[in-house]
């Protein structure tokens, strides 16, 4: 499939698209991909460039939206510097990383486990799949509200049943949302509830696309299923894992609705993650400059994290191909 082969074996096309089209057309392997990508790149650029430049501009100034009468002063890198010196920033960063790592880790293994179970041809499995997917279908705000309701005093299912059981066993009531450590884990739990279906779906896809031959070979060798899993399934699943984990990490890092509805960063500041901090700064205190600087820092962190992750996985993926 070299270029020369293409051009010589497809004369009708070259004839019908003489002129501009043949210059930018499929035969030009240097230019054509850009033609195909152009609409995507143009839209992303058009929508993305102004917000990005605006953020850079605002972050280098001193703008408080609720005080439009204040003069705009250029402050250079002051906003970033102030953030880095702000203990609240480091606290939020630590909480965010902890939340992201825990949530993605648990979601990944649970999702993988479920995906493996669903490989079996069981009666009623198609039906069950819809049940499993429900949390993901809910709007994030609604999911968060449902869980706030689950922990409502009195009528909340968790409070009433789980709390009732622990009370009966003599452990007393569990402070699901009132103890700093437990509240944080409760949020991780709800995030896991909401997004494991996503992992499950992405990994199911990956599993199903693994060819059969390697397993047959392993069977002949008499390899244990544990070994098969680690030496065949996991490596071949890499592309699916990559997308699933990168997307989920990006989203977990930005989790907002869940936290703001259920605890709003409390109790104390136990669940104040970056995005809670950001939203408070930007949309409650209207400190646009600080918020812009913060969001740019957040974006840098996500970029670095994804980049490293993709690098690690990519190199192996391409070998597998």
């Amino acid at each position: 499939m070299s270029i020369s082969e293409r051009t010589t074996t497809a004369p009708p096309m070259a004839l019908s698209h003489r002129g501009i089209l043949s210059r930018f057309g499929p035969s030009n392997r240097a230019v054509f991909p850009w033609v195909l990508m152009a609409p995507t790149l143009i839209i992303l650029f058009a929508i993305g460039i102004y917000p990005f430049l605006y953020s850079l501009y605002i972050a280098s100034h001193n703008v408080i939206l609720s005080k439009p009468y204040l003069p705009r002063i250029f402050v250079g890198l002051y906003q970033y510097q102030a953030l880095i010196q702000d203990p609240e920033f480091w606290h939020a960063l630590r909480k965010t990383l902890l939340f992201t790592v825990q949530a993605v880790f648990i979601e990944f293994w649970l999702g993988l486990g479920l995906a493996l179970l669903f490989q079996r041809q069981l009666a009623g499995i198609a039906f069950m799949r819809v049940f499993i997917l429900i949390p993901m279908i809910l709007p994030p705000l609604v999911a968060a509200l449902i869980w706030r309701y689950m922990f409502y005093p009195g009528a909340g299912l968790m409070t009433y049943y789980v709390g009732g059981i622990t009370k009966a066993l003599g452990f007393g009531e569990i402070p699901f949302l009132s103890d700093p450590t437990i509240a944080f884990q409760t949020l991780v739990f709800v995030d896991v509830w909401e997004w494991t279906p996503f992992m499950f779906l992405m990994l199911s896809a990956g599993l199903a696309s693994i060819p059969r031959q390697p397993y047959e070979a392993a069977e002949i060798d008499g390899a244990s299923s544990w070994r098969v899993f680690w030496t065949i399934t996991m490596p071949l699943l890499r592309p699916a894992i990559l997308i699933a984990v990168v997307i989920r990490t990006m989203d977990a890092f930005r989790t907002y609705e869940l936290i703001v509805i259920m605890t709003r960063g409390g109790p104390g500041n136990a669940t104040t993650t970056m995005n809670v901090f950001l939203t408070k700064t930007g949309l409650e205190f209207f400190d646009a400059s600080k918020a812009a600087a913060l969001s740019l820092i957040m974006m840098m962190i996500i970029i670095v994290m994804s980049f490293v992750f993709i690098r690690v996985f990519r190199s192996k993926t391409e070998v597998a191909e």
Binding site: E173, P175, S178, T263
Partner: peptide
């Protein structure tokens, strides 16, 4: 107040009162 009340907002406290508790 019960142990799990540090995050109670207007909604939670009012719900408890409305329920007669």
């Amino acid at each position: 107040m019960p142990a799990d009340s540090a995050n109670w907002g207007i909604g939670e406290a009012t719900a408890v009162y409305q329920a007669g508790n």
